[in-house]
Nucleic acid binder design. Structure first.
Lengths: 66, 66
DNA sequence: GAATAATGTAATGTATATCTTACATTATTC
DNA sequence: GAATAATGTAAGATATACATTACATTATTC
């Protein structure tokens, strides 16, 4: 499972801490999601999409190779 | 938070039990997700998309009215 | 290059997604 | 309409997303 959260976050000029605050989680949670170490909840994914102005499909996908 | 899982599942002619087996969870989990009583993990959402041949954006969205 | 901001990550605690088992209700089939 | 399939849901157990606190490392700014 992979994601584009980091790229999208930088594109809207947010730090991890700022994104975290906007979506209502801690900075650590954002960090772990960007690193692919968490399997985030749908609700959090949708909040992130809203904050970075992307769709679910643009941000998240299954990488069936790994 | 709302979803179209039930409609999409019926469209591909699967029962809750069949979809559950395909995505590797129990029937109860599918039932609760369709009812909107769970906030499923991204991984499970992606598995469901694959099974019912829909994209994340087609199946899941935030309903900001409720 | 020193100060500061941003990010990585570890330990421990909590909330909740999901499982297991079980039974009740509703829809479908003969 | 009786039998069966499909679905709803409840109780208790387990795994893990996420919080909290804290510190280390890396990037940025003056």
């Amino acid at each position: 499972m992979k994601n584009n959260v980091k790229v999208a976050r930088v594109q809207v000029d947010l730090t991890q801490a700022q994104l975290a605050e906007q979506v209502g989680v801690t900075r650590q949670t954002i960090s772990l999601i960007e690193k692919g170490k968490y399997n985030p909840s749908l609700k959090l994914c949708l909040e992130i999409c809203y904050a970075v102005q992307k769709t679910l499909d643009e941000l998240f996908w299954i990488d069936r190779e790994e």
